[in-house]
Structures are given as structure tokens and as C-alpha cells.
Simulated scan of single mutants.
Amino acid sequence: MSYYPYVVAVWLVLIGIVGVVRSRNLVHTVVCVAVAQSGTYVLLLAIGYQNGASAPVFGQSTPAGSPVVDPVVQAMTLTDIVVSATVTALLLALVVQVAKRHGTVVPDELHQLRG
């Protein structure tokens, strides 16, 4: 068992979180959120990986009792990709609206939004 995919997943999530915290631009913040979400893809695929296992297609080509990869994890990864694309599109649409209304995408210059 290799720990490399888990290290990569944690590294991507941490880099994304650090980027969100240090961001001085809303577009940069959205990109950093997308990077952090991509760490979840790597994590899910690392959890579902089995060494020497074949695709979960049962038929005459797969002998009975041979190990197969869990298809639920693959479906969850595809769902995660779709949700991430939707969240990124929504956040970018919000950034466009903020830029139209306030003329800037720098969070420190958005004085009207302070309570």
C-alpha cells in the first residue's frame, strides 16, 4: 500500500486552504477553492484503489472470485467533480456580480459589504 496518493490529497487541500486564507482577490479565492476540492478527487480514488484488481465489469472475461475495484467510489468521484464544477461556476458568477456592482474584486476594498 502506497501513502503517496494520500500525501498528494492532503497537500492539495492544504495548498487550497492556504491560498484561500492568503488571497487578495476573489477570483484567486475561487481558484484556490477548486484546488482544495481537487484534493478530494485524489483522496476518493486512493481509497477505492486496489492493487491487481480489475474493472467492475462482470462477464466471461472476469473469472469468478477475482478482486474488482469498488464502483461506488468511482461514482462518488464523478459526483464530486460535477458538484465542484457547479460550485466553481456559481462562485465565479458571484464574483462577476460583485465586480459589476462595486467595481472591484479585492475584498479589502468592498467597504459597502461591512456590517
Rank of each mutant, 00 (worst) to 15 (best):
Y3A: 15
V8L: 15
V10E: 07
W11Q: 06
L12T: 15
L14W: 09
I15P: 02
I15V: 15
G16Y: 05
G16F: 06
G16H: 07
V18R: 12
G19F: 04
V20D: 00
V21P: 02
R22P: 00
R24N: 06
L26Q: 01
V27T: 13
T29C: 07
V31F: 07
C32I: 00
C32H: 14
V33H: 04
V33A: 12
Q37S: 13
T40W: 06
Y41M: 13
V42Y: 01
L43H: 03
N51M: 11
N51S: 15
G52Y: 11
G52S: 08
G52T: 04
P56C: 01
F58N: 07
G59I: 07
S61T: 11
S61C: 00
S66Q: 09
V68M: 12
D70V: 03
P71Y: 04
P71H: 05
A75I: 11
M76Y: 05
T79H: 03
V83A: 13
V83N: 04
S84L: 09
S84N: 12
T86F: 14
T88D: 06
A89G: 10
L90S: 09
L94I: 03
V96H: 14
V96N: 14
Q97F: 00
V98H: 05
A99S: 09
R101H: 08
R101D: 14
V105M: 11
V105I: 12
V106E: 13
V106I: 07
V106G: 06
P107E: 02
P107F: 10
Q112A: 15
Q112I: 01
G115C: 02
